[in-house]
């Protein structure tokens, strides 16, 4: 059982307060979606949780994350940034293999255990056919899947992913969300920043709704994704309906922005 928690987390970047007074705890086995308008602080929260902001306010199983050694942290928390960059013409398989670094693996010395993790990550992201391709020749969505596979290959108990499906086609959006859900069912903690309300409603166990650097709502999808809260935070009207026992949600119309007043 792993618990990642933020305690009154406040972050300012370049003199601007990006996150203020964030408090929450997340346990393994949960698939948590973080939603919120552009600039709400979602990515900053994820980077803080990943230990990249060196703040004292994040704890892992009650221990401050910033005192953990870089390698121990890397083994525990896998992180996928919003925009991946592929500069060198590496094979997709080599990019995914970088995820084994925290386990002491290098491209020249992969163990059978590493190879298995890499193969599983490639399959989970539907990359078997592309494994030997030069990553710089892939499309944006294919690259995004390769970067996700890299994060999966870490096999960390905590997986933090920032908009992993934004660049993907609908089929791959669904299959990636299913993969992330399967990770949570395998008793990992999975936190996903999303813009897609429909995918969040469909897959999340819990939703954290952020607005202007603070948590506006935190709870089960049915409790958070109400027309009132989504209207207040996103300024949209939604359509919702039941399907397979799940309440599906579609953003339907943008409200005029009088809520600013």
């Amino acid at each position: 059982m792993t618990e990642l928690a933020a305690h009154d987390l406040t972050v300012s970047l370049g003199g601007r307060i990006v996150l203020k007074g964030i408090d929450f705890a997340a346990q393994s086995g949960e698939l948590i979606c973080i939603l919120g308008p552009n600039g709400a602080g979602k990515s900053t929260l994820l980077r803080a949780l990943a230990g990249l902001l060196k703040t004292k306010s994040i704890t892992l199983d009650g221990q401050a994350l910033n005192v953990l050694s870089p390698v121990a942290r890397a083994r525990t928390i896998g992180w996928l940034p919003q925009t991946g960059q592929a500069v060198w013409p590496l094979a997709v398989r080599s990019v995914v293999a970088l995820g084994r670094m925290p386990h002491g693996a290098t491209l020249d010395s992969l163990t059978a255990r590493d190879d298995m993790a890499i193969a599983q990550a490639l399959s989970a992201c539907d990359l078997d056919a592309l494994a030997d391709r030069d990553i710089t020749t892939l499309s944006g969505g294919e690259q995004a899947r390769a970067f996700l596979a890299r994060a999966l290959a870490v096999e960390a108990p905590i997986l933090l992913t920032d908009e992993p499906v934004s660049a993907l086609d609908p089929r791959h959006q669904l299959s990636v969300m299913e993969t992330l859900q399967a990770q949570a069912r395998a008793n990992r903690l999975v936190i996903v920043v999303l813009h897609d309300l429909a995918l969040a409603a469909r897959f999340a166990d819990r939703i954290i709704l952020m607005d202007k650097g603070a948590i506006a709502a935190d709870g089960a999808p049915a409790a958070v994704l109400t027309p009132e809260q989504l209207g207040a935070v996103f300024g949209v009207e939604i359509v919702s309906f039941e399907r397979d026992g799940v309440r599906a949600i579609l953003p339907w119309a943008a409200r005029s922005m009088e809520r600013e007043a």
Partner: peptide, 20 residues
């Protein structure tokens, strides 16, 4: 060599992989 490999995917990703 290994740090440079980790840096392939950007500085923060390299850090998230345990690189100082």
């Amino acid at each position: 060599g290994e740090p440079l490999r980790a840096l392939t995917l950007g500085e923060e990703t390299a850090e998230s992989l345990g690189l100082s």
